[in-house]
Amino acid sequence: MPAQKNRPNKSLAQGRPPGVQKPKSISRKNTKALINSLHLLEKKKAQAKAKGDKAAEAAADGEIAALGGIEKYQQASLQGQRNDRGGDSSRVLMEWLKPILSTSGLPAAGSLRMLEVGALSTTNICSQSGFFDMERIDLNSQSQGILQQDFMQRQLPTNDAERFDIISLSLVLNFVPDAQVRGNMLLRTLEFLKEPVKDSATALRDFFPSLFFVLPKPCVSNSRYMTEEHLESIMNSLGYTKAQSKMTQRVVYYLWTKSRPLTQTTFKKAELLAGPSRNNFSIVLRGPSDEGHTDT
């Protein structure tokens, strides 16, 4: 698939900060509060930058620094992957895939390629499963086995050998502070996935190539601009079909298969649900004829 035009691949550096090793223990309550606070401040900073308000941008930077900045966020992110906090999100992915992969007759261990965007660990459950040849990237890797790289700046593959059977975007998209860049990021995943193989084993065809996609539950359950139905419409326009989903008290997990041609309908930031307590999470997707402008 050729690269899309008029969609600047902005850096994700102003969004989700990546992980570090060996964090000090942080309570569950403090972990949630810290992540939420830093997320809101990063969004405030991005909005100020978009408006050219240098004073507001500097003020947001100061508040982020006062909370401990990226280092504290990194600690909180890794604390959330501890087994006593529910474990890493790939546990759910493997609950879905292991029964299929175990009986698929794959010729060798690691014969499926996975790209994990925003990787925090090289020892999560999907890495240890033996089914995948893993490639891990993050904005500011501090661990061997995780390449320091911005997905939006990653060189596009030139052949199928450079593409992947599955991409993981676990708690990544919600930390991108620009709604159109979120849409561009989802659109860009198509460039890195292999094309569907119609004559493959039925079980594998139903699950690959695919996108594993995790969001905080409030992004789809308590947003003015997003519902699960609206998200599914966006993903369907990109050519994805929902293969699996699971909603818990805090997060929602999806597995989307790349199964149909891209239609890329325009999805603007439009209020779907009213209410003063709702958040502003949204995804903007521009059609080929749309003028290049940004909704945040």
Rank of each mutant, 00 (worst) to 15 (best):
Q249C: 03
Q79T: 08
Q244S: 05
L156Q: 07
K45E: 13
E191D: 00
P99G: 08
D178E: 14
G69C: 05
A201C: 14
G105T: 09
M226F: 13
Q155L: 15
M185Q: 11
I26P: 12
T227R: 04
R188S: 00
F212E: 11
K242C: 15
H230A: 09
D290A: 04
R224D: 06
W256T: 02
N174R: 07
R7F: 12
N159K: 04
L273T: 05
S104F: 13
D290K: 06
L115Y: 07
V20M: 14
N30D: 15
A58H: 10
L171Q: 00
H230D: 07
P18L: 00
L186Q: 09
F131T: 01
N236L: 02
T122P: 08
P196S: 09
G62D: 06
D295K: 07
A55E: 12
N30E: 14
A59E: 15
M94C: 06
S168A: 04
W256H: 01
T266N: 06
Q81T: 15
M185T: 15
L93Y: 09
L101Q: 10
V284G: 00
V214E: 01
V181D: 01
E228C: 04
N9Y: 14
S141V: 11
Q180H: 07
A109F: 11
S77D: 01
F192E: 05
C126N: 04
N9K: 13
A243D: 13
I26Y: 14
G87V: 06
W256G: 00
N159V: 00
P107N: 07
G287E: 07
V20E: 02
P209K: 01
G292Q: 15
I146E: 03
V117F: 11
A33Q: 10
R260P: 03
Q81N: 14
E57R: 08
K98M: 02
M185L: 15
N280C: 01
P288E: 02
S259P: 04
S245M: 08
Q155Y: 07
V197L: 12
